[in-house]
């Protein structure tokens, strides 16, 4: 028997916001995100009513085929979504869904992932972005039994800091069928771990390479001087270090204190390394140019 929290059982026995949304006012749109299938053993249809003016989720309901934790995760998700801004909602992770239920048994984490995916599907549909152009589907199919791509597996490994193939199975089911892809999943874990270590190393190298220099004060810099100085620090101090590991970056724009950069090569496409690198670049620029600078990767 699974060790469900009281909260999971409470949501299972008394689910919130079940059913479809049928009525809408002028200026509201109803969208649906569908994930899973009858073959997988769980499926979720998430319905959102969005106020087009404020981009706010006015109502969220669900229909779920699945076990107690799938029903509870769906119910909890709808509670988390009501009143949220669409962009803000898109940032919701499966971890937050699980946490709102006081946690899920590790083997049931895929139920929270299903919630997050349905949410993404609903919002993509609202924005008119076809789901099949979504980056995940461009990846290679790793798990044939459950149709899981390497992109999705990499993402789940990064976002949840997973270390074993068994955990990956618990989160996205990959490897849970014929289990022939377990060695491939092990390889992906190894690659993501390497990426992470690499990005930490690179960040450390950037930090130590920054030579102490007289820090100019904000007042003494014109906008042009600021941009020129940022460009110079990037070109002379940051890019050479990135280049050693096959990475690169480019200054995209500067708006006030916001420095927009584009990460390239080995630096791109990895959420956790992006975050680590961004912080390292920011620390260098704060030190060398202006303490108030904030780096954003675009």
């Amino acid at each position: 028997m699974w060790d469900y929290t009281d909260k999971v059982m409470e949501h299972f026995h008394n689910p919130r916001n079940q059913g479809k949304i049928t009525e809408k006012q002028e200026g509201e749109e109803i969208v649906t995100g569908e994930v899973g299938s009858i073959a997988c053993g769980d499926a979720l249809k998430l319905h959102l009513k969005i106020d087009e003016d404020t981009q706010t989720i006015k109502d969220a309901t669900f229909q779920t085929f699945g076990c107690a934790s799938a029903i509870a995760s769906s119910s909890a998700l709808t509670e988390l979504l009501k009143g949220r801004n669409v962009e803000d909602a898109l940032k919701l992770t499966n971890k937050e869904i699980a946490e709102s239920l006081g946690g899920l048994p590790e083997e049931k984490m895929h139920c929270s992932v299903m919630g997050q995916e349905a949410l993404e599907a609903a919002i993509y549909s609202y924005k008119g972005i076809p789901l099949d152009t979504h980056e995940e589907d461009e990846g290679n199919l790793i798990c044939r039994c459950f149709g899981v791509s390497d992109t999705k597996i990499r993402r789940i490994i990064r976002e949840n800091n997973l270390n074993t193939a068994e955990q990956v199975t618990n989160y996205v089911k990959a490897g849970g069928g014929c289990s022939s892809c377990l060695p491939d999943i092990d390889d992906l874990i190894y690659e993501v771990t390497l990426e992470k270590e690499k990005s930490v190393e690179v960040a450390a190298a950037i930090a130590t390479a920054s030579q102490p220099a007289p820090s100019p004060t904000a007042k003494s810099l014109t906008n042009l001087q600021k941009i020129t100085l940022i460009q110079r620090v990037i070109d002379e101090e940051i890019r050479p270090i990135l280049a050693e590991d096959g990475g690169d970056m480019e200054l995209f724009d500067v708006e006030g204190d916001i420095v927009k950069v584009v990460l390239k090569g080995a630096c791109s496409g990895c959420a956790s390394s992006t975050e680590t690198l961004k912080l390292a670049i920011e620390a260098t620029l704060k030190d060398r140019v202006l303490p108030s600078l904030i780096v954003e990767s675009v």
Binding site: M9, F12, H13, D42, F65, G66, C67, A68, A70, I71
Partner: peptide, 14 residues
């Protein structure tokens, strides 16, 4: 049809 076994079992368990 159309529903999942664990959910039935946990409901029976009540």
């Amino acid at each position: 049809k159309y529903i999942e076994g664990e959910a039935i079992l946990l409901s029976l368990d009540q």
